[in-house]
């Protein structure tokens, strides 16, 4: 535990040691605002809720989260620090968890900085703050899922651009699985349980259901499983190919 904290702190601080943190946060906040106000018609629809804000988070994360995760392991490989880290008295798990949690906490900071949206909607009307809190939790969990995918992909390469592109593609598949367009392809011929299974693989399905204000144990379990599975894969990838 002590080592996880040490690695977490180093990794978390490293985001802020370069302009990366500020560039990321500023772009995230601007895009989140643009989506909510212009595309989501936050004002025009005249409802005191944050649905237009949260409904674009999956698409925002699709491109922004891989930008955080791409460096996690690819950079360690490129600079050779993976050899330093792996010969220090830390276990593979402590390294994987410490780095992953730092990236997740960073995404959490960016998400938390959208609080002016919450203030705005409370100033303008009388929203259901419970639903908003649930949506924030859902959004944070979804970011965690994207990051776990990204962390694993980042461990497979020393090239951050490759890590970015593959992470976007795989995250896109995880999102698309819940899209009605994709589901309608299967609905014609596949039995309903299979269509449901494909839909239930999607980040979108689970995020949407949480962001409606219902925190269902199954949705939490889904994100926990996705994160755990990708982190296990992450550790296996590192164990198999530490050196190259």
């Amino acid at each position: 535990m002590h080592n996880v904290v040490t690695i977490f702190r180093r990794e978390f601080a490293s985001y802020f040691a370069t302009p990366l943190a500020f560039v990321f946060i500023v772009i995230f906040l601007i895009l989140a605002g643009v989506f909510a106000f212009y595309i989501g018609s936050f004002y025009e629809r005249g409802q005191a809720d944050l649905a237009p804000f949260f409904s674009y988070h999956p698409w925002l994360y699709l491109f922004l989260i891989p930008a955080i995760s791409m460096r996690l392991w690819a950079e360690e490989r490129k600079s050779g620090t993976i050899e330093l880290l792996m010969t220090l008295p830390v276990t593979l798990w402590q390294a994987v968890l410490g780095k992953y949690l730092a990236a997740w906490a960073f995404a959490g900071v960016a998400l938390a900085l959208t609080f002016p949206m919450w203030i705005t909607v409370n100033y303008l009307g009388d929203p259901d703050n419970g639903t908003i809190l649930a949506a924030y939790i859902g959004s944070f969990l979804m970011a965690g899922g994207f990051l776990a995918i990204g962390s694993c992909i980042s461990a497979t390469t020393r090239n951050q651009v490759i890590a970015f592109i593959f992470t976007v593609v795989i995250c896109f598949l995880f999102l698309l699985a819940g899209f009605s367009l994709v589901l309608s392809v299967f609905e014609g011929w596949a039995p309903q349980p299979i269509v449901d299974a494909i839909a239930s693989l999607s980040f979108l399905t689970h995020f949407t259901s949480i962001s409606k204000g219902v925190i269902d144990l199954r949705d939490l379990l889904y994100f926990a499983t996705v994160i755990a599975a990708w982190l296990v894969a992450n550790a296996i990838v590192l164990e198999l190919k530490k050196a190259d």
């Binding site: 180093r10 490293s14 600079s79 050899e83 330093l84 220090l88 008295p89 830390v90």
Partner: peptide
């Protein structure tokens, strides 16, 4: 261990890097 090429975390200062190693080494 000094690995070949002496890799270290470039964005850290010498002090924070050595303190990080001290923490990991307990």
């Amino acid at each position: 261990y000094l690995p070949e090429g002496a890799p270290s975390y470039g964005e850290m200062t010498v002090r924070t890097f050595l303190e990080f190693i001290a923490n990991v080494r307990g």
